[in-house]
Design a protein around this nucleic acid. Structure first.
Lengths: 224, 224
DNA sequence: GCTCCGCTTGCAATCAATGCGCATGCCTGC
DNA sequence: GCAGGCATGCGCATTGATTGCAAGCGGAGC
């Protein structure tokens, strides 16, 4: 198993690396968020241990971006208790967390527990909503039986809406989730993508699937 | 039968070599990963006994690279129990493992068991996708009934795509898998090989089989 | 009905990813 | 050593995606 370890403290990195390698795992390390993202896509790790307090891109942001592409298990390292709430509160798809200081042995145990539990959770299965189905892994979308080619952004929007079709997402939330806090994109941009997405779904026979709730946000139209 | 034995501990190497030779096999040894790869391709062994904890290139990496070329049975030597999960978990195509310390006699017994079992397990069957078939062992590829001569890189790309035709592979992933993380090859290089591969498949009547998903990666075109 | 503000749409600029021609260098077989 | 095939990767053209401005539309409250 290949583990990506992300922490900016070299000493901690070495310590943990040793423990993980001793557990028989292959370890790739990254010192900051950028490097983490690079390795996450290059090395395609089977597990990620991610510190929250990173320079520049913090752990939350890194997690968010990785989650756009992959379902790889992620375990957070938190320096303070109050970060824990954050980890749990955010819908980042974190699998567990460990508060510093921790014993390397405990970390290894956690990782084993997670990997064991996540084994049978295969087949993430496409998200569906009526005749719409979206398989983020395969980057494939169908509506009314027809294949629709979506761009990365379009899929991002649809993916988020499909996660909880009942909920209304504000524009701010969409932007924060899809683009991240770091690159503040204009509302107009979101609108543009939304328009393109709507056009594609409409053209494929999906009708007016995305509903605007004036001054609140957007959601998928409820099915009858 | 010729056996390649890879371990960095000279004493263990001698001990095991003796036991293997006593069992009537020819033995080639390597002390590190590089040497192992060299011998694996030069000597074309019938069996490989591979320690995990090697300097520089570890056993997993060595196994991965050998598997790109060959289905030769590989037996891992693991230093600790917890490495075992790893060996089994990874889709490296390991055939068995033995935990250190072990008796040379037990090792010989394992090797015999594996060779016996893997005899009738011939015909790994070529990978197929529509009219395309690829037999990595034989380094042979057919499309639309026509034979296509592929270079090593071309086959590498096609092989990876065929492993899971649904999945989209990012350029980074392709590069990491085919070239290994150690030699970071330029995107343009991948493009060049991709172009050659496409041209060959196209010319052989396979049509436009490899699909680019902009900003995401490439995959095999879905068949209807 | 009027106004404000949010939303949609047309359009154009910008940016990024991809593909390709071509040059270079390596390695192998002769 | 030499020819030929293969791998590599630079530079540029092309394509496709992203971004956001400006104008117009429309809902909600007055």
């Amino acid at each position: 198993m290949k583990i990506l370890l992300v922490d900016d403290d070299p000493r901690l990195r070495d310590l943990v690396r040793l423990a993980l390698e001793r557990a028989g795992w292959q370890v790739v390390t990254a010192a900051d968020g950028q490097e983490a993202l690079l390795h996450a896509s290059r090395e395609v790790p089977d597990f990620i241990v991610l510190d929250i307090g990173l320079p520049e891109l913090d752990g939350f942001e890194v997690c968010r971006r990785i989650r756009q592409r992959s379902e790889v298990p992620i375990l957070f390292l938190t320096a303070r208790d109050d970060e824990v709430d954050c980890v749990l509160g955010l819908e980042l798809g974190a699998d567990d967390y460990v508060t510093k200081p921790f014993s390397p042995r405990a970390l290894v145990a956690r990782i084993k527990a997670i990997t064991k539990r996540s084994q049978p959770t295969q087949k993430p299965a496409a998200l569906t909503h009526g005749t719409l189905s979206l398989d983020p892994q395969a980057h494939r979308c169908q509506i009314a039986g027809q294949e629709v080619a979506l761009t990365a952004r379009e899929q991002g929007i649809l993916h988020l809406l499909l996660q909880d079709p009942v909920r209304i997402r504000s524009r701010a939330e969409l932007i924060a989730t899809i683009w991240g806090a770091s690159s503040p994109v204009s509302d107009r941009t979101l609108d543009s993508h939304l328009r393109n997405l709507r056009a594609k779904l409409e053209q494929a026979g999906g009708g007016d699937l995305i509903e605007t709730v004036h001054a609140v946000g957007i959601r998928l139209r409820t099915l009858i």
